[in-house]
Amino acid sequence: MTTFKLIINGKTLKGEITIEAVDAAEKEKIFKQYANDNGIDGEWTYDDATKTFTVTE
């Protein structure tokens, strides 16, 4: 398992979430669903070196 981080830079929601997953593709799906469930629609980036997804509205 690898630890992945999501950084949220939303208009109404900001924060960080850290979760373990098998791979980045699995985690991306979970993070995007979390963002969608919380009304966050923005630009996504991924840094493989730090295993960090960022979504910015």
Rank of each mutant, 00 (worst) to 15 (best):
M1V: 10
M1D: 06
M1G: 07
M1S: 07
M1W: 09
M1K: 11
T2Y: 14
T2N: 04
T3P: 03
T3I: 11
T3S: 10
T3E: 06
T3W: 04
F4C: 14
F4L: 04
F4M: 04
F4T: 02
F4N: 03
K5Q: 07
K5W: 14
L6N: 00
L6I: 14
L6S: 00
L6M: 04
L6V: 13
L6W: 09
I7E: 01
I7Y: 07
I7R: 02
I7T: 02
N9I: 15
N9W: 11
N9D: 07
N9V: 14
N9Q: 09
N9H: 05
N9L: 11
N9S: 05
G10C: 15
G10I: 14
G10F: 15
K11L: 14
K11W: 09
T12P: 08
T12N: 11
T12Q: 08
T12R: 04
L13S: 10
L13A: 06
L13G: 09
L13P: 03
L13F: 15
K14N: 11
K14E: 12
G15S: 10
G15A: 15
G15C: 15
G15V: 15
E16R: 04
E16V: 11
I17L: 09
I17A: 02
I17P: 00
T18N: 06
I19T: 02
I19C: 15
I19E: 03
I19M: 06
E20Q: 10
E20F: 13
E20R: 11
E20H: 11
A21L: 15
A21G: 15
A21I: 14
V22I: 11
V22F: 10
V22N: 10
V22Y: 11
V22L: 11
V22R: 10
V22H: 10
D23A: 05
D23G: 04
A24S: 13
A24M: 10
A24H: 12
A24V: 12
A25I: 09
A25D: 11
A25P: 10
A25Q: 11
K27C: 15
K27F: 15
E28G: 07
K29L: 12
K29I: 12
K29D: 09
K29C: 14
I30D: 05
I30L: 10
F31P: 01
F31V: 12
F31H: 01
F31M: 10
F31L: 10
K32Y: 10
K32D: 03
K32H: 08
K32Q: 12
K32C: 13
Q33W: 05
Q33N: 07
Q33D: 07
Q33A: 13
Y34P: 01
Y34Q: 00
Y34T: 01
A35D: 01
A35V: 06
A35R: 03
A35M: 14
N36H: 12
N36G: 07
N36Y: 13
N36W: 13
D37A: 11
D37Y: 08
D37C: 13
D37T: 09
D37V: 07
D37K: 06
N38K: 08
N38I: 14
N38L: 15
N38G: 03
N38C: 15
N38W: 14
G39E: 05
G39P: 02
G39I: 04
I40Q: 00
I40V: 07
I40E: 01
I40A: 03
I40K: 01
I40P: 00
D41N: 12
G42R: 04
E43R: 07
E43N: 07
W44D: 00
W44Q: 01
W44K: 00
W44I: 04
W44G: 00
W44H: 00
T45Y: 07
T45M: 07
T45S: 11
T45L: 04
T45H: 08
T45V: 10
Y46R: 00
Y46D: 00
Y46V: 01
Y46A: 01
D47A: 02
D47N: 06
D47K: 00
D47W: 02
D47C: 09
D48Y: 06
D48M: 03
D48H: 06
D48C: 07
A49I: 09
A49P: 04
A49W: 04
A49N: 06
A49C: 13
T50V: 02
T50N: 06
T50S: 06
T50Y: 02
T50H: 02
T50P: 00
K51T: 04
K51G: 06
T52N: 01
T52G: 03
T52E: 02
T52L: 02
T52S: 03
F53H: 01
F53L: 06
F53I: 03
T54V: 05
T54E: 04
T54K: 03
T54F: 09
V55Y: 08
V55D: 02
V55A: 03
V55H: 05
V55F: 12
T56Y: 09
T56Q: 07
T56F: 11
T56G: 05
E57A: 09
E57P: 09
E57Q: 08
E57L: 15
E57R: 11
E57K: 04
